[in-house]
Design a protein around this nucleic acid. Structure first.
Lengths: 267, 267
DNA sequence: TAGTGGTCTAGACCACGAA
DNA sequence: TCGTGGTCTAGACCACTAT
């Protein structure tokens, strides 16, 4: 019925919008700049706000936009390159620099899945150290490092479980406990590590640590550390997918420029 | 006005729905099974269809559900572990097994970004080999492998650019051309490789190769191959984020069970 | 208080796949 | 032809931030 459009548009509106907006924000806006609000953009393009938001959702997933409630929508900074490897992560060998900060530790009998993953019988005591990773002033990742108690070497002299005499400082109890686990862990020589990366979403607790709403897309890095011929520890790290670009350093590679992350569209 | 609810619900409806649905599909449905359609689920939970869809969107992003237009929504199979490394990928050293299949090749002067990433002056001739990766009968990734012509060693005797005498077979021309580039590439000894992983979305062409709609979330793996003291090649691989779990094999690690991918929630 | 993004609604029509 | 998910609309109200 009338309104003969320019042939068929095989492309959904929101996808076309995304392309137009992407071109606009890369050419006409600077990093950190606020783009027009959703209601105005929707009106300007003659679409419903929901459709406009669908386009913005895509760009946010791609890490090109950041939306802040009460503030507006900003052009995102390029993703931060985050080194992921034993050497860079800082275990073992000590938390070189301050890449990982221990924020807590729980000790509990292993559930079935966790026990299976650690290669210990279900119910065995497992230490779970909570850490956060800071890069360029931002929290970019949170991690749960699981170690079976039986895999943990004892410390030479110091008391292992001195239940707070000096807790008057107000320091979170789990923190020191976590650091103690890490100190014991450092006495192991790591034979190798195996790693996996996949896409996930942040649950409530992780989301809170990452200062993001629940459902935020994250890159889940699962690392298995082997020592003394057995699996010594299992680390599950969740990196903010919007701001992080995980880099894996390797064998003596002549120094190469980090890829600008935009080469994809340069076929 | 009336309808005094049970205190405040700090959680959005769609997020609560996601949790409920996740529990339901993991306990009451088998892999590949079709769950009730969106209109019925929305009615059952007393929400608008858009809200219900928001919950399904989350679960699809997590790889727990697969939606097929005209069919329904299915419970997804666990993610496939896909080895990502020089040894497993099959270059160099020959396309071991059939992990990567060459589907095309273009030769063109490098754009600015691509030239910069390859470390050659803009405008230099660059070969871009298109490949797809198949795992368990499914296309899981597509790749563009860029090599500067100047970095490519010549083959010993065979003609380099024989323009089709036997093209009568109907084979796509770019295919053989791509394989030729790979053969030449194999003559290089790789000194090292550097890798990065980040989240992206599939553009139109990639989406088509992956048999998915545009905007599909993908894991973008950027690999720099160094040979003879310089950057030899740049590979940009995009893996389906919904079905793939990238694994990085490493130094002689005692065989460990692959982590069941559900340990995250087992704190 | 005003303005922003976040959530939610109730409907409509379309594109695709199967029968 | 019918049922499915995919897209889109026009509106409403809420939560948060700045002033």
């Amino acid at each position: 019925m009338g309104t003969a459009q320019l042939a068929a548009v095989p492309e959904p509106k929101y996808w076309h919008l995304r392309t137009v907006l992407l071109r606009a924000i890369t050419s006409e806006f600077a990093t950190g700049e606020v783009i027009p609000n959703e209601r105005e953009l929707a009106a300007r393009f003659g679409v419903a706000r929901a459709t406009l938001r669908q386009a913005l959702d895509q760009l946010e997933l791609e890490g090109r936009l950041v939306r802040r409630r009460g503030i507006g929508t900003l052009v995102a900074a390029p993703r931060v390159g985050v080194p992921v490897s034993r050497r860079d992560e800082g275990w073992p060998g000590g938390n070189r620099e301050q890449v990982w900060q221990t924020v807590g530790c729980t000790v509990a009998p292993a559930g079935e899945r966790l026990a299976g993953a650690l290669g210990v019988p279900a119910g065995e005591t497992v230490h779970s150290v909570r850490r956060i990773r800071v890069a360029q002033g931002q929290i970019v990742a949170t991690e749960a490092l699981h170690v079976a108690d039986s895999a943990l070497p004892a410390l030479p002299e110091i008391r292992l479980s001195g239940a707070g005499e000096e807790a008057a400082e107000g320091a979170a109890d789990g923190e020191e406990q976590g650091r103690a686990v890490l100190r014991r862990l450092e006495r192991l020589t790591v034979d190798g590590e195996s790693r996996a990366v996949e896409l996930g979403v942040a649950e409530a607790d992780e989301a809170a640590l990452l200062q993001r709403p629940p459902g935020t897309p994250v890159l889940v890095v699962t690392t298995q550390y082997a020592a003394a011929g057995r699996l010594a520890a299992l680390a599950v790290s969740t990196y903010r997918a919007d701001t992080c670009r995980l880099t894996f350093g390797e064998t003596g590679l002549v120094e190469v420029t980090p890829v600008p992350a935009a080469v994809r569209s340069a076929s």
